[in-house]
Simulated scan of single mutants.
Amino acid sequence: MAIVDIHSHFFPKSWPDLHAKFGGDWPWLKHQEHGKAMVMKGQLAFRPIYSACWDPAVRLEEMDRDGVSKQIISATPILFAYDKPAEQALYCAQLFNDAAIEICSHNPSRLFALSQVPLQDIDLACKEASRAKSIGHVGVQIGNHVGLKNMDDEGVLTFLQHCANENISVFVHPWDMMASERTKDYMMGWTVGMPAETQLSIVSLILGGGFDRLSTDLKICFAHGGGSFAFLLGRLDNAWHHRDIARGKAQKPPSAYLDRFYLDSAVFDHDALDLLVKKMGTDRLMFGSDYPFPLGEQRMGQLVKTAVNLNEQQKQQILATNAEQFFQI
């Protein structure tokens, strides 16, 4: 059974000293022994990683271990630089986009890349998304917000329409999680904040009238199974029907827009996967592992492979067919 993993991350083994170039706090890698490294943000430790992030040989070996046919790599959100001046963020986007293509060049039939863009400047973001497509990227990954601007922001909608016009697939990843002071312990920023951010991004795009305005040609997928969106869809519909202020600009109830976007399968629980299938259908789900991080699926594809309520055709849809069509790989 073919497996295409649409949600995996990378770091280059090294990159120019961004602090020396621009000043301020920037991510960098502190390499350790035995293929391990610590991602640093200025002088603060951010995340431990290992060589699968930068070494395509290690990545391919672990893909073979789990039977993964193809994998799409994307930057870890700490590299977005949305909080920096736009020209600096553009420099970073080009730097890491080129690095991603270099990693994929080691086996271009199995490794593919999503670009990043300086989303705080829509003109620059559109230009970089198009440039990245021209050098081989199969889509673009964006964060789910820029500061206080959600997915219904006019600039973000302009960027999404550009992607629809240029046939650039979009993957939305949560980052810079809400309530950081209240979720700083126990990794709750990742286990609580990230799902909440993902639900917020979908709901803001729906209720902000984004799907009513954007071309149906837009191909957009949200990470982490959409967070808590599927579980709370009934609450959203109830609010839309019974409180006019809860409708926003959406012409239809939220459940009427499920055919406008995709979700990945990174939910780590068969009951949650069953709910996604019931709400979205197998034709709107794509396998994502969040590899190679500790909070990702440790044996890529096992959740879908062992799902007792899916037949072989449905498993293959989620594991590969939908992704191959969505990203044209």
Score class of each variant (00 low, 15 high):
residue 247 R to C: 15
residue 252 K to I: 09
residue 254 P to G: 07
residue 205 L to S: 03
residue 253 P to N: 09
residue 269 D to K: 05
residue 172 V to C: 10
residue 245 I to K: 07
residue 221 C to M: 14
residue 184 K to Q: 11
residue 208 G to Q: 13
residue 161 Q to D: 11
residue 214 L to Q: 09
residue 158 T to D: 11
residue 246 A to M: 09
residue 230 A to S: 15
residue 200 L to V: 12
residue 219 K to T: 02
residue 250 A to R: 09
residue 192 V to H: 05
residue 163 C to P: 00
residue 239 A to S: 13
residue 154 E to A: 13
residue 187 M to Q: 10
residue 219 K to A: 05
residue 223 A to M: 07
residue 189 G to D: 13
residue 183 T to L: 14
residue 173 H to S: 05
residue 173 H to I: 06
residue 253 P to C: 04
residue 169 S to G: 06
residue 233 L to P: 05
residue 231 F to C: 10
residue 269 D to E: 08
residue 238 N to Y: 10
residue 253 P to G: 10
residue 224 H to I: 05
residue 200 L to R: 08
residue 154 E to H: 11
residue 235 R to T: 04
residue 233 L to H: 06
residue 167 N to A: 09
residue 191 T to G: 09
residue 163 C to E: 00
residue 244 D to H: 08
residue 266 A to H: 13
residue 218 L to Q: 02
residue 206 I to G: 06
residue 201 S to C: 04
residue 232 L to P: 04
residue 158 T to C: 10
residue 205 L to T: 06
residue 162 H to A: 05
residue 226 G to M: 07
residue 269 D to A: 05
residue 207 L to R: 04
residue 195 P to Y: 12
residue 232 L to K: 11
residue 222 F to W: 02
residue 157 L to T: 12
residue 154 E to I: 09
residue 184 K to Y: 06
residue 176 D to S: 13
residue 198 T to L: 02
residue 252 K to Q: 15
residue 264 D to S: 06
residue 167 N to V: 03
residue 154 E to F: 10
residue 231 F to V: 14
residue 261 F to M: 02
